[in-house]
Design a protein around this nucleic acid. Structure first.
Lengths: 171, 171
DNA sequence: CTCGATGCAAATGCTTTGCAGAAAA
DNA sequence: TTTTCTGCAAAGCATTTGCATCGAG
């Protein structure tokens, strides 16, 4: 089991690397380098976690309040197309974007009580999926595994859980 | 796309059982039995697969064209609340509903070339997830595993895949 | 009779798009 | 200069909701 800590400090060199990779992508596509794109991309890679458009927009506006959400959406799509960013949806109806992870692929645990999202990776799990796909004559491009539940070690989460159960009883 | 398939036998007894269970749920909640709800529920359980609201509405309208989508949405929510139906989202932006099959839990393989959705279940996979959660002090309420890829045994899927790869080269 | 259910249309929330002006190449 | 980009507002989409009417209990 490899646990991934999302609270580590931002690696400045890594950010620069990502920015350079995006710049290269832009050029390869024959697109234009703009102040807005630079601001958005730079801001994005300096944030951590699973970032919603809203959250990113707030940060971007601190650097340049004139940037609108349309541009943020458009740039985010470019980031996804470039392969530098992944789009995720955890069922709360809004897209979240994920950039610089130490590990290229990982799965998620989502606490439904406190909203925490943590990442994990396990090679046995990956291998088992590959094996099952094989048995079904299926070729995996990518997969998504999400565990929804509650933090066992947080009192608040456990309390909320009990509350919900009680409410369900009454219904 | 698939809706009601007259060739594959729907287990009439099972459908009746589901209908009865829903009726019981409605009563327990102090809600009312209506012609519309009966039509929608009955139609739903006679369809198979992962049904979108649109697909269900089309079938429902054949029985009663006056039923609108608001009622279909509302009834679908009741079905989910009753525990008889599960809501799924496979990333194409629309919700799909699934009547509980014989196996209470299963995961999905989704072919991105032909749209096929198949189900599978593997106890080792389930056990491994449980173990990983345990190691992280996490309590799983439910999980979701989806493998996205292509059917290996369908020529059309493989052909489409190659086409996509070629297009990606050019870009 | 009462109160929940229905059907329509309008509203919502997230996301995309059309367009005129702005800015890269 | 040419073409893409931006910012705004309007449009899209799936889904939800307000409200007058309808109908089950």
């Amino acid at each position: 089991m490899v646990s991934i800590n999302p609270n580590s400090k931002v690696d400045e060199d890594l950010v620069k690397e990502k920015e350079a990779a995006f710049a290269e992508f832009i050029q390869r596509r024959g697109l234009k380098t703009t102040r807005q794109r630079n601001t958005i991309v730079s801001t994005f890679f300096r944030m951590k976690g699973h970032i919603s458009v809203e959250e990113l927009l707030v940060e971007v506006k601190k650097a340049n309040p004139r940037i609108g959400y349309a541009t943020v959406y458009r740039t985010l799509h470019l980031l996804v197309e470039s392969g530098l960013v992944e789009e995720r949806r955890f069922g709360d109806g809004l897209a979240r974007y994920e950039g610089h992870s130490a590990v290229e692929h990982h799965d998620h645990m989502i606490c439904l009580e406190c909203g925490m999202i943590s990442e994990f990776y396990n090679p046995r799990l990956e291998a088992l999926q590959e094996k099952l796909a094989e048995e079904n004559n299926f070729e995996i491009y990518r997969h998504r595994l999400e565990l929804y539940g509650a933090c066992k070690d947080k009192e608040a989460c456990q309390a909320r859980k009990k509350q919900k159960e009680a409410r369900a009883q009454g219904a």
